[in-house]
Structures are given as structure tokens and as C-alpha cells.
């Protein structure tokens, strides 16, 4: 240890009776300055100013040195106090709001879901939805009356296009079904007109009667179904457009009366 302290070096610098160069020649002071970064900075700053001070008139030299070094010392002492300033009330909360309390970004699904829920919760949502729906209808279909006409014709066309093939197929099935159920005339079975066929045994007669009844019931049901279908098609044609004659025409005549 040299026994020289920073304060002694600074005091020596500020001593009006000593030349600034006198004390720096002391071995102890030099050893201290070599080890002390603060004093190195101090002397460096002192040396920087020294060149300017040499131009000061001799009578004012000491005063100038004192003023400048005292000012420098005070500045170096005070500067660290500027390192911490109070940002004022509410600053911490402001920073936390901008960082940790900031809502995290959500996925588009969650965002859309939340937006939809918020929209639905609004009291006027039903009115607004009705308005938007009406607006869309008008934009897409134009004049509402024309749109209804257009819709009728188009829906009828779609119905005919979609229902035509299955109706034709169903009619074909019904006709073949009717043909199969229709009782054969006696001549077709080889029995001459006016001749009485051999009486069948009672069990057979009962069976034939039952078969006849079933045949008649089935024919009646088929006719009723056909009539109902015809009415449905006519209703569709009346409501949605021109009746479709060919594909939806019900099977005709003779089978209906049997």
C-alpha cells in the first residue's frame, strides 16, 4: 500500500499552494494512480483541461484550476445520482398493461367464435339478421315478386327433373304388378262359354276365394296409391309450375275399375 488515497490526490490537485505537477511526481502517488482507475480518469480529465488552462493569465491560474477541478469533482460525484429517476405514479401499471396484461393473440377459430357470441348477445341481433337476410334475398333474386315467380318455375323444373325418373319407374312397376294380379278370363283357361266347370273341392274353392279377395284388395290398394300419387303430382304442378304430363301421368283405366 502506498498510503495515498484518492481523496488526497484530489485534494492535492485542488491545493492552491501547489503546482498541479508537483504531487504527480511523487512515487507513492504515481503507484496509486497506476492501480486506481478512478484517479486515472481524474488525471486524464485534468490533463485534457490543462492545455486550455495554460493560456490563462498567471494571476488567475490558480482560481481557474480550482474552479475547473472543483466543478469536475462535483460533476463526477453527482452524475451517478442521475442514474435513477422516478418515472411517476402509475408507470409500473402502465408498463404491465402494455406487456403482461395485454391479451395474448388467439387462434382464428377462437376469435371467430368469440366474435359470434358477442354478436348474438346483442339485443338487436334478430332484427339485424332479418334485415341482412332480406338484403341478401333482394340482392340475389332481385324483385321479391319476380323472385317468387322465378322460384316457383325453377323449383317446379327441379322437381320434375328429380322426380320424373323414379315416377316412371314406379308406374312401370305398378303396371306389371297389376297385370300379374288381374284374374284370367275363363276362355283363356280353355273353358267354353256357358259350360260349367267341374266343381272344385271345398278346400280349393275356399283357397280360390281367399286368393280372389287378396287380389282384389291389392288391386284396390294399388289404385288408391296411384290416385294419391296422381294428386300429389297435380298439386306440385299447380303450385310450382306447369304440370308434367308424360312422366307423372298415373296408369290409366281398366285396372282401376277391377
Amino acid at each position: 500500500m502506498s498510503g495515498i488515497t484518492c481523496d488526497q490526490i484530489r485534494a492535492a490537485t485542488l491545493d492552491p499552494g501547489a503546482s498541479p505537477r508537483d504531487w504527480t511526481g511523487l512515487p507513492e502517488a504515481a503507484a496509486h494512480v497506476r492501480r486506481c482507475a478512478a484517479c486515472q480518469d481524474w488525471l486524464e480529465a485534468f490533463a485534457t483541461g490543462e492545455q486550455a488552462w495554460t493560456s490563462v493569465p498567471a494571476g488567475d491560474f490558480t482560481d481557474q484550476v480550482i474552479a475547473r477541478t472543483a466543478g469536475l469533482e462535483a460533476v463526477l460525484r453527482d452524475l451517478p445520482r442521475l442514474a435513477d429517476m422516478d418515472p411517476g405514479l402509475g408507470f409500473t401499471e402502465r408498463v404491465l398493461r402494455a406487456t403482461i396484461m395485454k391479451p395474448s393473440p388467439v387462434g382464428w377459430r377462437a376469435g371467430a367464435s368469440g366474435a359470434w357470441r358477442a354478436l348474438v348477445r346483442r339485443p338487436r341481433f334478430a332484427w339485424e339478421a332479418a334485415y341482412v337476410a332480406t338484403l341478401c334475398w333482394v340482392l340475389v333474386f332481385g324483385n321479391p315478386v319476380g323472385a317468387i315467380e322465378w322460384s316457383r318455375s325453377n323449383i317446379g323444373a327441379v322437381a320434375r327433373e328429380r322426380l320424373g325418373p323414379p315416377v316412371r319407374e314406379l308406374r312401370s312397376d305398378l303396371e306389371s304388378w297389376r297385370a300379374a294380379l288381374k284374374p284370367e278370363p275363363a276362355s283363356a283357361r280353355g273353358i267354353p262359354a256357358g259350360a260349367q266347370a267341374d266343381p272344385a273341392p271345398p278346400v280349393l274353392r275356399a283357397w280360390q276365394a281367399a286368393a280372389e279377395w287378396v287380389r282384389g284388395a291389392a288391386t284396390s290398394a294399388a289404385a288408391a296409391f296411384s290416385t294419391a300419387w296422381e294428386r300429389i303430382v297435380e298439386w306440385f304442378a299447380r303450385v310450382f309450375g306447369e304440370p308434367s304430363t308424360a312422366p307423372t301421368e298415373p296408369p290409366a283405366g281398366p285396372a282401376r275399375s277391377s
Binding site: A83, D84, M85, D86, P87, F91, T92, L96, T99, I100
Partner: peptide
């Protein structure tokens, strides 16, 4: 993070002020 903000806000504010 909150403790960090409270600890360094004075220094950062002073730097920003400079």
C-alpha cells in the same frame, strides 16, 4: 416480470430521459 419492472424502471426512465 413485475418485480423486474419495478427494479429497473428508474434506471431505464433516467436513460430515456437523457
Amino acid at each position: 416480470w413485475e418485480a423486474f419492472v419495478r427494479q429497473v424502471q428508474g434506471r431505464l426512465f433516467a436513460l430515456a430521459y437523457s
